[in-house]
């Protein structure tokens, strides 16, 4: 039976050379829990592949009817990248703030509709 909550701490440089490893870890986390928390407080850097991963994970969670949340303080090095990439206007200080901003970019419910899994659909 899946646990209710699981936390994965992402540490070090979250770059493309760790892309597959990170994807698999997050996927496994989602498979085994209803609520997955990604703790970013130990992440020291990232590249575009990590941003892709965050969006892909959000979509996956929605499609699976599960929740994915971001937590922990975001390091200085990481904050600027979110602004440069246009993902937020002000650098987020915590995972929670980042999560709120990232969600804005996902068209609500589209993945859920495609997969036919449970979830709330909000019509445009």
């Amino acid at each position: 039976m899946a646990e209710d909550l699981n936390v994965i701490t992402l540490d070090g440089n979250l770059t493309i050379d760790r892309g597959t490893e990170l994807r698999d870890a997050v996927q496994a986390g989602l498979n085994n829990t209803r609520q997955l928390f990604l703790n970013l407080s130990h992440a020291t850097g990232a590249d575009m592949s990590f941003f892709h991963l965050l969006y892909a994970a959000q979509k996956e969670a929605r499609a699976m009817g599960k929740e994915i949340h971001l937590s922990g303080a975001i390091t200085e090095e990481l904050r600027g990248l979110f602004v440069t990439g246009g993902f937020c206007k002000e650098a987020p200080a915590t995972g929670r703030e980042l999560e709120a901003v990232l969600l804005e970019f996902l068209p609500p419910g589209s993945e859920v509709a495609e997969t036919g899994e449970t979830g709330e659909r909000v019509d445009p």
Binding site: I16, M48, L53, K59, G86, S110
Partner: peptide, 27 residues
């Protein structure tokens, strides 16, 4: 500088290839 990313084409994790760049931007 104002940057708007287009992320709608990013697939869900199970279809995700970390080595591909799917996002594009309007700057």
């Amino acid at each position: 500088f104002t940057c708007v990313p287009f992320v709608a084409d990013i697939p869900r994790l199970s279809d995700f290839d970390p080595e591909k760049c799917i996002v594009h931007w309007d700057v």
